[in-house]
């Protein structure tokens, strides 16, 4: 088990290096720098700017310098907001995004699991059908449709929430619900499938025969096995919540990293784009690794391998 974890950790290192090299290389390939604006910059100022960001060095020197700085955790200055470092911007915005993402994941798990379990237990009843229909809507309707429609309905017409902002706990409700909804739908489907399979197994019948109560059979005996497909879905779900937050933060005007990333792409703020991509890659790969380990640990059959 420990060996397996170690191997997986070591495997991620070349992947990360490849991501960094690829992103850096692509950014350098393009003709035209971030200072080629409509307003002509005097050549001496442009030279100074390029020296400030180390753009006057040959490309491979720039890359080595970037790697050396990265190893110390320094992502350089933003090219758009020249007085701020990328680290500062990330430190400022990442907590908001993590907060939103965490809430969304909680929504996805809570809604998805309970809907899936109920649908499996009350199979082929109206409850099951309505849960499945809701899940289909959640899967087909993307976040950027659901978000504005939810704002229109709950914030503008019913006035239950503010239409945008991230100030008080009430502001957290709508964004995390909308962001978590799609994944709740997938999780509900997976839970239903997993639970149905487990519920037809012999050991569940045995548990029932021994007089365990209904809820006890479901929660203590069936859930463990029924959850395995859900766990393997957590990796993609986290990745999806991450990219989904770009949209949610735009719709609800939340000052998070997702919006900053999209804006940095629009501004062609190379250092900020690069720093955010690397951060996202590290984040995703780490979380995927954790999910993998969790999965192995929960499944005795793969643990012994």
């Amino acid at each position: 088990m420990l060996r397996l974890v170690l191997i997986r950790v070591l495997q991620t290192i070349p992947v990360l290096l490849a991501i960094i090299a690829l992103s850096f290389g692509m950014l350098k390939l393009v003709p035209g720098g971030p200072f080629d604006t409509e307003k002509a910059v005097p050549p001496e100022i442009k030279r100074n700017l390029e020296a400030y960001y180390g753009l006057d060095l040959p490309a491979h020197r720039q890359f080595l310098r970037y790697l050396a700085n990265l190893a110390r955790g320094d992502l350089g200055y933003s090219m758009r907001y020249s007085s701020r470092t990328v680290n500062e911007i990330i430190a400022d915005k990442l907590p908001v995004s993590l907060h939103l993402g965490g809430l969304a994941l909680a929504v996805a798990l809570a809604l998805g699991l309970s809907a899936g379990i109920l649908a499996a237990v009350f199979k082929n009843t109206a409850l099951d059908y309505s849960a499945s229909a809701l899940a289909m809507i959640g899967i087909c309707v993307p976040t950027f449709v659901l978000g504005p429609v939810a704002v229109l309905l709950f914030a503008i017409h019913l006035r239950w929430f503010n239409a945008s902002g991230w100030y008080e706990p009430l502001d957290w409700v709508l964004p995390s619900l909308v962001l978590g909804m799609v994944y709740a739908a997938y999780i509900a489907r997976l839970t239903r499938g997993g639970m149905l399979e487990v519920l037809s197994q012999d050991y569940i019948r045995t548990a029932r025969a021994k007089g365990a109560s209904g809820p006890r059979v479901i929660l203590r005996h069936a859930l463990h096995g029924g959850l395995i497909p859900v766990i393997s879905y957590l990796g993609p779900a986290i990745a999806g919540i991450l990219t989904g937050s770009f949209v949610i933060e735009t719709i609800f005007q939340i000052p998070g990293l997702g919006r900053a990333f999209v804006e940095s792409a629009l501004n062609r703020d190379q250092t900020l784009v690069l720093g955010t991509v690397i951060l996202y890659a590290v984040l995703l790969i780490t979380l995927n690794l954790l999910v993998d380990i969790l999965q192995t640990w929960l499944n005795p059959r793969s643990r012994s391998r």
Binding site: S23, M26, T243, F246, F261, V262, A265, V277, A281, L284
Partner: peptide, 20 residues
């Protein structure tokens, strides 16, 4: 497998940032 583990939406956005 390796490409699968990359955050691809993010890469598309990166491409857009690079090439306009």
């Amino acid at each position: 497998d390796i490409l699968y583990s990359l955050p691809f939406t993010i890469f598309v956005i990166l491409l857009v940032a690079i090439f306009g």
